[in-house]
Design a protein around this nucleic acid. Structure first.
Lengths: 238, 238
DNA sequence: GCGTTTTCTTGATTGAAATCAAAGTGTCAC
DNA sequence: GTGACACTTTGATTTCAATCAAGAAAACGC
């Protein structure tokens, strides 16, 4: 369920983004930022909420402030594939598109900073630095998609699961240092399966295997402990 | 083997591109085009030639004039995945990157129009229309990558091969109309396998199956005849 | 043309992941 | 807390694609 927290005590300005998570705001001047802030709106969503439907008209952009958003595509008969995960401070939405190429869904509870389509697009036209920043993010997404194609096409189930855990471990807290990680999985087994092109049973079995081999320690169901990141990497096949 | 045909009777100017294949030139004014043309160079490559290595320094951009170029990524142990195919008039190379994220190889014999890195990047800075055109191509590549992730993760071998044939049928000659197609496969069975995340044996078997079911007719080894494109589509799973 | 090499096809067998099935665990409303 | 429901794990079996192994057909060099 979408819960609008405009008018709450959280400052509803993109100003706040700039400091906290290096979103698009870094490319904006103070006056541009102020102008944009008049249109942005902070919203919360719970895990499972659909933020935008595949082939539905694109309404707005949004910066991910907290949580994980999944991009999915579905075949006619219902088979589903997650084609991208977005972490803070990624920007959701694609420039100049009339309709969404993918379905956008909250994987975990998320906070978003919504930006109306026209507001951002007007700003991009007059600000080459912002356009370049968006290009950089798009190229990074392309790299990630291609990396994941290798995982989907050529890795074993064990390598896929290890690669997924490594991805989460490194993306949830990019600032973390050292060879040890601890985090809560933002995705269900079903989501992980849809991301890896596997079934939930296979994901579960491979997780158990990694646990048995001491690569990961599972405290609670979703809580993962990685004693040695380098050891996990060795299981990823690349 | 790279065969340089500069100084041949083929006009070595990007001017020619604009008319023939709607490359980046469409975004350029006549004077810009002339300036660019001073730096571009038409080159030929044979199937199998490596045009740029993964993690090697990026030297230049190039427009594909004729033929098919494959983008590949390779795991440490040699497993390979094709992560993209480029047809005319696609632009090879990524903006502002110091090194290649992928290995670039000629799948068939190809003609390229090479553009030095600095020449294009200087032009992009001063020409927003060109920047937008590159953004559009990048977004299209992202869409294609994500579409292919669904194929890799969720389709059966039969659906994968059908999807590949459909991709080639629609990309080799985008202008073609009607429900019938005839073309030469620009990729070997090994390349097809690397694109689909399969083995060559499985690709071969599925091709034989499609032939047996009358979906495709194979004249010579590489020559494919598709009597009904719509029938092939029905085998793609989406 | 003819032999060599490479690529492609087909068959037999194996193996990894899917499917089918059931039990266990966690979460949430009340 | 307690029951209901959803999610996860584990086991048994099946299936699809990989692997192993020959042949057949093209492509190539001479």
């Amino acid at each position: 369920m979408r819960k609008d927290i405009h008018n709450s005590n959280i400052p509803v300005r993109c100003m706040s983004c700039e400091v906290r998570h290096k979103g698009i705001c870094g490319a904006l001047g103070a006056d541009e930022l102020q102008a944009l802030s008049a249109h942005t709106r902070l919203v919360n969503h719970e895990a499972g909420d659909e933020l935008a439907g595949e082939k539905m008209p694109a309404e707005s952009y949004a910066t991910v402030i907290r949580g994980v958003v999944k991009l999915t595509k579905t075949l006619e008969d219902g088979r589903q594939q997650i084609v991208g995960l977005q972490f803070a401070p990624d920007l959701l939405g694609r420039l100049n598109a009339d309709e969404n190429a993918v379905s956008v869904e909250a994987a975990s509870d998320v906070n978003l900073c919504r930006i109306p389509k026209v507001a951002l697009e007007r700003m991009v036209k007059s600000n080459p630095a912002l356009a370049e920043r968006l290009m950089t993010q798009t190229l990074r997404e392309l790299d990630e998609a291609r990396d994941w194609m290798v995982t989907l096409g050529r890795k074993t189930a064990a390598e896929k699961v290890a690669s997924f855990l490594l991805l989460i471990a490194t993306h949830l807290d990019p600032e973390a240092t050292g060879d040890r990680r601890q985090f809560d999985l933002p995705l269900s087994r079903a989501d992980i399966a849809d991301f890896l092109g596997l079934t939930i049973e296979t994901v579960s079995r491979q997780m158990s295997k990694l646990k048995a081999e001491g690569i990961i320690g599972i405290v609670a169901n979703r809580h993962i402990h990685v004693p040695k990141l380098s050891k996990l990497k060795a299981f990823c096949g690349s």
